[in-house]
Simulated scan of single mutants.
Amino acid sequence: MNKIKLLENLSNLHGAPGHEYEVTAFIKNNMKNFNCEGDSINNLYIKNNKENNYPIVALDSHSDEVGFMVEGIKANGTITFLPLGGWHITNIPAHSVIIKNFKNEYIKGVVSSKPPHFMTVEEKQRLPKIEELVIDIGTSSYEETTELYGIEVGNPITPDVVFSYDQKIDVVRGKAFDNRLGCAIVMEILKELNYNELRVNPIGVISSQEEVGLRGAQVAANKIKPDFAIIFEGSPADDTFKDNFSSKGALGKGIQLRVLDAGMVSNPKVQTFVKNIAKKNNIPFQVIARSGGSTNGAKYHIADKSIPTVVIGIPTRYIHTHYTYASVRDYKDAIILGKKLLEELTEEIIKNF
Rank of each mutant, 00 (worst) to 15 (best):
G154F: 13
P156M: 10
T78W: 08
V162Q: 11
Y149E: 01
K191P: 09
L214W: 07
K129C: 04
N53S: 09
Q286F: 02
T272E: 04
I99M: 11
A217L: 03
E211M: 03
K168H: 05
T90F: 10
D39V: 14
S63R: 01
W87K: 02
A237W: 06
I336K: 14
E343T: 05
S246K: 03
E233F: 08
L148R: 15
I312D: 00
G263C: 11
A278C: 09
Y300H: 06
A58V: 03
G213V: 11
L13H: 08
V70Q: 00
I73Q: 04
Y106Q: 08
Q256N: 05
V66P: 06
Q209A: 15
K32T: 14
A176Q: 08
S306Y: 14
I56D: 00
I224W: 05
I107L: 07
N201I: 05
G292K: 10
G154C: 12
I99E: 07
P308R: 11
S266G: 00
V162E: 12
I203N: 00
N179M: 09
P236W: 03
D227E: 13
I137V: 09
I41F: 14
G18D: 11
I350F: 10
I231V: 05
D227K: 12
M69S: 12
N196L: 15
N76Q: 07
L251R: 02
V186R: 00
Y165R: 02
Y323N: 14
E131Q: 04
G338Y: 03
T158F: 11
A303E: 02
E20K: 03
N42Y: 15
